[in-house]
Design a binder for these strands. Sequence first.
DNA 1: CCTCTATTTGGCTATTTTGCCTAATAGGCA
DNA 2: TGCCTATTAGGCAAAATAGCCAAATAGAGG
Lengths: 104, 104
Amino acid sequence: MTQEEKIRYEEMAKVSKALAHPSRLFIIHKLAEQEYCVQDLTKMIGVDISTVSKHLAILHNAGIIAKEKRGNCIYYSLLTKCVLNIFSCVINVIEANKEKINRI
Amino acid sequence: MTQEEKIRYEEMAKVSKALAHPSRLFIIHKLAEQEYCVQDLTKMIGVDISTVSKHLAILHNAGIIAKEKRGNCIYYSLLTKCVLNIFSCVINVIEANKEKINRI
DNA sequence: CCTCTATTTGGCTATTTTGCCTAATAGGCA
DNA sequence: TGCCTATTAGGCAAAATAGCCAAATAGAGG
């Protein structure tokens, strides 16, 4: 692995890491439907609001979601729709695993 | 988030987590071309062989790669080609981020 | 059966991530 | 201006992850 490649894969891992948490996957799934502010998501997830805020910061920092202040709230929305492809692939992998288990 | 949803997102996170490391992304990229055994990958990555073995175990456990013993070696190969879609999406996100930075 | 090679496992430390609580900040609105 | 709501930041402890070394295991091949 060359130095250049190393940097490239680290960059990619940064984005991948942003997806590697159940709450953040949930958030992405929700934001794919419509925008929400921190409180909305907090109610749905059921953890401390500061925790949700940090998850959103991670996703925003990775360039996956957008934030926009309007009125009293900050609305978050999905920036790159293609992350939904990741969802379907991850689901593919899970289904394939289950099939394999069932075959045994 | 219902209990059912929670379990579902945790399952998905397990697969996502398997992708969230530069060496593992590199491994996936290489295995997309052809199968390799632990030593081969170790030489390419340049970390301890036990570390590579553990990365491979994580990917295998997530159901992303297959292993097959043949002769003296255990050959690993990519099981679910669609993870390559994840690559292209991650690259999309990175490119979009760079464009945004350049615009400023 | 013995040896040798390839891989995995266990143990350990360092680092990173998570999530809560409390406090700070930002900005809308009376 | 001053209050009030929404969000973020800082600090801390618990948990998870990464990577090395040394030891164990598996099994091919003489």
